[in-house]
Every structure is written in C-alpha cells, then in structure tokens.
Design a protein around this nucleic acid. Sequence first.
DNA 1: AGTCGTTATCGTCATCATGACGAGAAAAGG
DNA 2: CCTTTTCTCGTCATGATGACGATAACGACT
Lengths: 226, 226
Amino acid sequence: MGYPVFAVTVDLVVLTVREGDLHVLLVRRGEEPYVDRWALPGGFVREDEDLAAAARRELAEETGLDGPGGHLEQLASYGAPDRDPRGRVVTVAYLALLPDLPAPVAGTDAAEAEWRPVGALGLAFDHDQILEDGVERARSKLEYTPLAAAFCPPEFTIAALRQVYEAVWGESLDPRNFHRKATSTPGFVSPTGGVTEGEPGRPARLYRRGDAALLNPPLLRRRADG
Amino acid sequence: MGYPVFAVTVDLVVLTVREGDLHVLLVRRGEEPYVDRWALPGGFVREDEDLAAAARRELAEETGLDGPGGHLEQLASYGAPDRDPRGRVVTVAYLALLPDLPAPVAGTDAAEAEWRPVGALGLAFDHDQILEDGVERARSKLEYTPLAAAFCPPEFTIAALRQVYEAVWGESLDPRNFHRKATSTPGFVSPTGGVTEGEPGRPARLYRRGDAALLNPPLLRRRADG
DNA sequence: AGTCGTTATCGTCATCATGACGAGAAAAGG
DNA sequence: CCTTTTCTCGTCATGATGACGATAACGACT
C-alpha cells in the first residue's frame, strides 16, 4: 500500500506573564529555511516518542523547566502542503503556560531565545497563525478553568491572579469584584493560611490553585458585543 | 538531516441526532489490522493535500454530503507510537456535525457503514478515545456557540433545536426557558417568517441559524456539581 | 360545532451572579 | 500620628436563570 510520508514536528506556544504583559518564548532560527528569523520553539518527533512526550521534551530543552505550576496541552495541528519548503511537514502545536521564570531560558540549547510581548511578530513558517491560535486558546481557557494559576508561582495572592487575567485578556478588572469571584467560586483557589510580608499596603492572603477542573460558573470576559 | 517518517491520516467523528439520540457514523474495517471491527471513517492524507481538505474529502466520500448546514472542525491529533501496528501513524481527528441525513450513508465507498448511538463501543485503534473527545467537544461547543443548528435542517423550530441539546447533553431542558433563551440571545437564531404545518399542536415558527460566532451569554449545561 | 389533547409562546416570580462603588482593615513610610 | 497603599468586606441595582402558571393555536374526535 502506497501512501505519502510526512515529517512530524511539535511546536510550542510558551506563554508567561512578565511585567503585566503576556509574553511568548521565541527562538532565533540557526538554519535554513528562515535563517535568523524568530520562530516558535519546536523540533521533530522522535522515532518512538509520543506527541505529548515530544512536547514535554522540547519544553524542557528550551526552558530548563517543565515542573509543577505550569500547564501543557495540545493546541492544534497544521499541515498545509507548502508550510515548509523542505517538504511535507505536519506540526502538532502545544500550548504551555508557565510562571515567570527566575531561571534564564534556553539553558541547554545554543540557539538564541527570548521572551517577546505577543502581538504582530513576523515569525517563520505559519507560526504567526499558531501563536494567534494559542493566545486565543489561553484567553478562552482562563474563562472556564482555574488555569490562570499556571502563570503564577505555587503560592500567590488574589491580586497576582487578577493581574494574570488583565495581562492575558488585555483589559482591567475591578479588584473587589474579582476578589469576590475568585474566593467564592468552588475549587478556584484555596487559601494556604500564609500572608505576604514586606509588600506595600495591607498584607494579602496567599492561595494555591484549587482542585476544580472547571470554573462553575465561569469567569467571562467582556465581549466585544454583538 | 535524518528524522523519522510518519504516515498521516485524518479520522472523522461524524455526529448526528437521530430519534432523540446522538449517533456517530462508523465503518466496518475491510482489512488488517482490526479486520471486521468498527472504526471511525478516515484515510491517508494525500501528497499535496491540506489536512482540512483531506477531512472534507473523506466526509464527502463517506456521507455523500458536506453541504451547508453541517459543520467541520479540527478536533485533536493522536500519535502514540503503538497506536497502529503497521508503523508510525499520526492521525488528525476532525469533528463533523450533520443534520440527520435523508440520503443513505456510504454512497461511494463499498465498506459497510452505519449510524450507532454513542456510548461504550469497542472501536479499532484508539478510536474510542477519539470519539469520547469528539463528543465532549460537541457538548462543550453547544454551550458557547450556535452550532446546535448544524444538527438541524436549514429551517427548524425552537423545539427541534432544544431536542438537539437534550440529545447531545443527555438531559432534558424546560421548553419555556429554552425558548426564551434561544429567541433572546442575539445571533442565536433568526426567524424566517414561516411556520410549521401539519404537525400536532400549535404551529411553531421556523428559524435559521443566527450569525453569531459565540453565544453571549452562553447556554450552560447543569454541571455535576463541585 | 364543541371538546379534548397537544404543543408553542408569553408572563411572573424568586434566586443567583454580576458590575459599580463605598468603606473599613492593616500594613509601610514619612 | 498621619498619609498612602492595598486588601477585604458590604451594599445596591441590574440582568440571567430555574420553576412554573396561563393563554394561543392547531388536529382529532364526538
């Protein structure tokens, strides 16, 4: 039976919140095609490797960290016949949400890597589209899941969680209403008992991510109207 | 540069509502592996074919119909190393929502095909998992989009739309509250001006699918609690 | 024609969630 | 001690929802 053969890659949309803005991890390509252009990190899936395992491996290689606190999920697949000039390549994109890393990125890999605010970046291949899809997925996930905590360190304040929403959604939220919502939605966050120290203003209680898979009711962003 | 080669297939989760229950389109396999076992329809992506084009082609081959009124979207990709005994095969699953077909399925293809109520079916490969993911996606999509209309003919009644929700979600909804919600949510449905004739009971107004991409506010199913 | 069963459509009411905003609590810094 | 800052708790009006009553408009039957 004859059928076409493909190369299969995984590409990563790695998002984090830095200084109040949503950032994506990019690497500068070291070889053709698109030499010296910025692109999403990624690579070929190995002979005996599951797709998710390949994504985890690439994430660890690029960030030196996959540990708890983050989140990794499959995003979508892209396989236009002409998306890679080298031939038929299907890529399975994964979306990673990480806390702002104290450790520098690109630990093991020699390639240049950096965090860039999301926006109109002229990335290699169809990576602009993949990034756009990833950002939209993240925005949507924050509505229905407690995943915003994946952007935070293990213990965080309600204000930090709110700033994640504000950065990802690009809109500001009322601190008092957000506080009520976060603390009253079952499984969203759970208090650790600790409080912040040395910060300006009244000390804030610390929370961990709750155990709910879904927020019920969800926390909907303000729609453009319709 | 040496990298592994893969075969790439598309598999379809084709759903419809028949007689008040959610059904999936299955085909009986005619060759190894899994001969004579039921499986999701699908096939290899061709040399110069986009993934979505391959999905549309397979859908047309299996149902003889891809026309307007239905819906097709990418679901997810599956690529466990051992998911196909023939070798390394990555499949990109697509989800199709169709109105109950007047035409018989499997027009062109010689393989046996039939609609089966969704549930615990012992399908070939990892198709049970793919089906489960597809059904969950459909359930979720009905909450946030007007896509339930994709299960209906071009013109339909509010009651028909409600029966779609009841079949897909597996729960009953109050006809009066559903009517209020469907007709008051902007872009959900739009009246055609026509009414049903010859049906028992009071004639019902006919509607077409609205132009909204998202329901705002959404129509949430009753959660299992948390 | 009248009655009944059936389904569609509209209305009412209590409850819950939300947006807007006031106000006190608890820290740091002068 | 006072001001500034930020967290936390309340209040109130509004909007969405669940539960359910009531009426409208058909076919079928007597």
